[in-house]
């Protein structure tokens, strides 16, 4: 809308600060000129910084302050989530996502869910797609037993031996090749 002159618009500056931009489709809150401020306009200053501040500003626009408004629910809806919400149990999950089951905690090993309620199985692609490695993270309990189970499961699925690598301290297992889908199915079947 109107260009924001410094002398005209001290009120807007007060609102927005020097660093925050005033959107060009917002109204210029200070653009309403009183009779006294006309003289400021007519002068040309060599520099923006040399122009004086306007000190006397009348209340320009009439407004009301609504405390505890009914519309505050709409504002609350827009504010960011403080935590990722817990999933309420449902009958079906059409997206194919499955919540963790109670029975998984009785196993000697455990794969914890991520903060976004996902099973931490990922595909690492390196060397321009030449090397694919499936990584299972967040393993708790007997990692070697889990490794043996995964090895036999992948051998049965693929009909060949699949190399794996166990990182005991990092609590993750890497399997050679793209087995994300297979291992996801396995993890869901175990209840992780």
């Amino acid at each position: 809308m109107a260009t924001v002159l410094r002398s005209q618009c001290a009120f807007a500056r007060l609102f927005a600060g020097k660093t925050v931009q005033i959107l060009n489709n917002a109204t210029d809150l200070g653009a309403k000129l009183g009779p006294g401020s006309q003289s400021v306009l007519s002068r040309k200053y060599s520099n923006y910084a040399h122009s004086p501040f306007v000190t006397k500003i009348k209340e320009q626009y009439d407004y009301e302050i609504v405390k505890k408004p009914a519309e505050w629910a709409f504002v609350k809806r827009l504010l960011p989530l403080e935590t990722i919400p817990a999933v309420t149990p449902k009958e079906t999950y059409p997206s194919g996502w499955i919540p963790p089951k109670e029975e998984a905690t009785s196993l000697p090993y455990f794969i914890a869910r991520t903060k976004n309620h996902e099973v931490p199985i990922y595909l690492d692609i390196t060397y321009r797609g030449m090397r694919k490695i499936t990584k299972i993270r967040k393993i708790e309990g007997d990692i070697w037993m889990l490794n043996d189970e995964i090895k036999s499961y992948l051998k049965q699925k693929n009909g060949r031996y699949v190399e794996t690598r166990v990182h005991e301290i990092g609590r993750f297992i890497e399997a050679k090749g793209d087995h994300v889908h297979d291992l996801m199915q396995w993890a869901y079947s175990k209840g992780f």
Binding site: Y61, D62, Y63, K68, P69, A73, V75, L79
Partner: peptide
Amino acid sequence: FYGLEPGWVVNLKDECILKPKD
């Protein structure tokens, strides 16, 4: 925004909304 009209100023600190009457 849903439920919020253009021209309003939302004050998050005092939880109030400034509505223009002009």
